[in-house]
């Protein structure tokens, strides 16, 4: 009796405060752009009548939350910004095997029996067209004297995709490029957005390894910024979507994944300047087939994650 009174009281407060967890049908944790997940949720609810509760943060903050919640998890669908999380969760046996009927046109390297990509971003050089520097074409260009002190790198410890790029490039020439960049006064500057912001204002000329969709978004808003994908190759960061095995709403979760991969869902993905996972959905930006991808062993570099991060941190340590 007392308990039910209490929950009524708390429920009333929760309603007043404007969140209705009690009516949640599925809960999605996503590292994606807030606007994308808002539109996906809206479209999905309109189509299926199933309500979506969203928690959006960086991959790291989401993982911290799942870790702390481990005793009593609440997330049904997780969309991470790093494929590594999907591998890790699969290894822990936390994922539900599911192959969406809409995933047919998703290329094989963007799906497996427990995971499918929502969309893909690629890394490249974000360059301020007003910076007075020549337009770079290659990663190595940014180590040239014209860019001295004008290059930012996203912190590989904070950005999974930057880590993959740095590891792949570092393995290719034993970190010579990074030593050259350091000698050219390039700086490691926080997460992706933190690295890009000084470039927009002109404090820096370029981001080495910028996330493309954020840059395209800024460009669309009128910022004098351009995105360059080096011909020597880059890395892509598929954004894996997965259903957690503790979910009590697995059927609804599967429907959400279906919607995400539907024509409508993939169009929303394309609208945020991400590459759609499906090859048959058009996008107003370069697609995977337009990019040169570097060849590297994902498992190997993640196995040496700590060593690689230490190596890069050592190179860029302040003098």
């Amino acid at each position: 009796m007392l308990k039910s009174l209490k929950s009524v009281a708390f429920g009333a407060l929760a309603t007043i405060l404007g969140a209705g967890v009690a009516h949640a049908d599925i809960t999605v944790y996503t590292a994606g752009p807030q606007s994308l997940i808002d539109k996906l949720a809206e479209g999905f609810t309109a189509e299926s009548g199933i309500k979506v509760n969203v928690f959006q943060a960086t991959t790291g903050k989401i993982m911290a939350r799942i870790e702390a919640e481990a005793a009593n998890p609440v997330v049904d669908v997780l969309i991470s910004a790093s494929w590594d999380t999907a591998t890790d969760f699969a290894k822990r046996g936390w994922l539900v095997p599911y192959s969406s009927p809409n995933a047919e046109k998703v290329p094989a390297f963007l799906k497996n029996d427990t995971t499918v990509a929502q969309g893909v971003s690629a890394l490249g050089i974000a360059w301020n067209t007003n910076s007075g520097t020549p337009k770079p074409a290659e990663w190595a260009d940014l180590a040239k004297p014209e860019y001295k002190g004008l290059v930012n790198l996203p912190d590989p410890a904070q950005s999974g995709s930057a880590f993959e790029l740095d590891a792949a490039l570092g393995a290719a020439d034993d970190y010579k490029l990074f030593k050259d960049l350091k000698a050219n006064d390039a700086a490691i500057a926080g997460a992706n957005a933190e690295a890009l912001n000084p470039v927009l204002q002109g404090a820096k000329a370029a981001v080495f390894g910028a996330v493309d969709y954020i840059t395209f978004g800024s460009k669309a808003k009128g910022e004098s910024i351009d995105m360059i994908f080096p011909a020597s190759g880059t890395v892509v960061a598929p954004r894996p979507a997965m259903i957690l095995n503790w979910s009590k709403n697995q059927d609804e979760a599967k429907k959400f994944v279906d919607y995400m991969l539907s024509d409508a869902g993939q169009k929303l993905v394309a609208d945020t300047f991400l590459m759609p996972a499906r090859t048959d959905v058009p996008a107003a930006r370069p697609l995977i087939s337009d990019l040169e991808l570097m060849d590297y062993d994902t498992a190997a570099i993640y196995g040496k994650r700590k060593e690689i991060l230490d190596e890069i941190a050592k190179i860029f340590a302040a003098n």
Partner: peptide, 20 residues
């Protein structure tokens, strides 16, 4: 909580997505 926005979260998410 899931689905809840606050002032600081709103600002932070805008920064994260480049809408400074």
């Amino acid at each position: 909580p899931v689905g809840m926005q606050t002032i600081a979260l709103f600002i932070w998410r805008q920064f994260e997505q480049g809408s400074v």
